[in-house]
Computed example of a mutant assay.
Amino acid sequence: MTAPLSPLLEATRRFPTRLWNDSADPDELTRSIAFGAVGATCNPVIALAAIRKRLDVWGPRIRELADERPTAGESELGWAVVEELSVQAAALLEPSFEASGGRDGRLSVQTDPRLHRDADALVAQAVRFSELAPNIIVKIPATSTGIRAIEEATYRGVSINATVSFTVAQAVAVAEAIERGLDRRADDGLDEHEFGSVVTIMGGRLDDWLKSWVADQRILIDPGAMEWAGVAALKKAHALFRERGYRSRVLSAAFRNHLQWSELQGGDLVVSPPFDWQARIDENALPVLERIDEPVPAAALAELRRLSEFHRAYDEHGLSIEEFDTFGATVRTLRQFLEADAQLDALVRDILVPAV
């Protein structure tokens, strides 16, 4: 008797919904590919965790890089390791990249969060990262500066994955920026190819922010409703992308509950859980149902609509582009990414100049 398929593998075979692994760690990615994963994403926090997990490999490599680059500082050496980690992971995805004509098989590399105020620097780094491997996709934050950088990087041929993105307004602004970049390329007669660009909504981080905001405002709300906020934003963004024919896909990231996988099945989008979430979905044999067009439960949405902060995240015009920078989830996530950068610097320092 044939063993039942993993729900993850079954979903990838039945639906256009694509599975990515929320880490560039080669061991995890290899296991995720067995579940049907055709992409992977990374950020400073994830990269730092992957390097720490295999310090037996990356510690000696950092020392080798320091010998090869005698004037390089901690930041340069740390980011060199991130690049090497990304190239290794990208190689694992090349079969999917080739088979899909470039739409899938992508490995995300994030621009240095310390460049978040400089659009030109973000574009320059994005162009360089895009040249590391043919299937690299580059993360740029969905901030006011990042929106400008996304359009210009797209024009220069970079495949985009927006990050530091939590709201429908941010997702639409990124999609429109990508469209402008692609249209400029066409107007200038530049080559057309499959960019495979995606627009992340970090649904779990939106949930985290709203829970914190509700507590600060001393608002009592059905706690179950709070698990639906990120899902609601993702479903709405997907519907808008489909209606408008954007040449990018929504990506669900920052998992906090299984709804952020199960409620999106059937959509032409990407779900990117950490591998541990994939394992739990498999272990619990979650049913594989086409739920992307199923509305968020009315009672949960009614509760969420009581919150002005939810409207800012859920309504297409809930935030202006300038307000992207001060939205609570943006500030918290950007600070966390900057802290991970500092921790990577410290890790390199401790290898090169160990304490005595």
Rank of each mutant, 00 (worst) to 15 (best):
R114Q: 12
E68P: 04
Q217G: 07
E227T: 14
L264W: 07
L264N: 00
G267P: 09
L77S: 08
G146W: 12
A91E: 15
D216V: 11
L115E: 06
P274L: 07
I160K: 00
L264D: 05
P273Y: 10
T30V: 07
K211I: 08
A340H: 01
S6M: 09
E179C: 04
L190I: 12
L240S: 03
T326W: 10
S320I: 14
T145D: 02
D187A: 15
A89G: 11
H116C: 14
R156F: 06
G181M: 01
A99H: 09
W20S: 10
L210R: 04
A254W: 03
E192Y: 02
V45C: 13
A229R: 03
E176M: 07
L132S: 00
D120M: 10
V271I: 15
D345N: 09
T2S: 09
D345F: 06
A225T: 04
A239G: 14
L48K: 09
E263M: 14
S75W: 13
S130R: 03
V250I: 15
N43C: 09
G230A: 09
W261D: 00
T200M: 15
E179Y: 01
K211Q: 10
A355T: 15
T111K: 07
F337Q: 08
I136Q: 01
L352D: 11
V271L: 03
E74A: 12
L55D: 10
E179W: 06
S6N: 09
Y155E: 04
V250D: 05
I178W: 01
E131V: 03
A169M: 11
A229P: 00
V45G: 02
Y246I: 04
P70R: 13
A72V: 07
L251K: 05
L48M: 02
H311N: 13
Q278E: 11
S252A: 15
N135L: 08
S197N: 06
G196K: 14
Y314G: 05
R249D: 05
R249T: 10
L259Q: 08
W277V: 15
I140M: 10
L240T: 07
A298K: 11
L206G: 05
S23P: 02
L107Y: 00
L344M: 11
G181E: 00
S86V: 12
L234A: 14
Y314C: 02
G36W: 04
E64K: 13
A169L: 10
S272C: 13
G245E: 14
V271K: 02
S23K: 06
R185S: 09
G203S: 11
P70Y: 05
V348D: 03
A229V: 06
P44D: 02
R106L: 07
E192S: 15
V168D: 06
R31V: 06
V82E: 00
F166L: 06
G245M: 12
A133C: 09
Q265C: 10
D183P: 03
G224T: 15
G157E: 08
A89V: 07
I292M: 11
A355P: 04
S32A: 15
G204W: 02
R54L: 13
S159I: 02
P4Y: 09
A239Q: 14
Q88T: 11
R106F: 05
A355H: 08
Q260C: 04
A302K: 10
T200V: 15
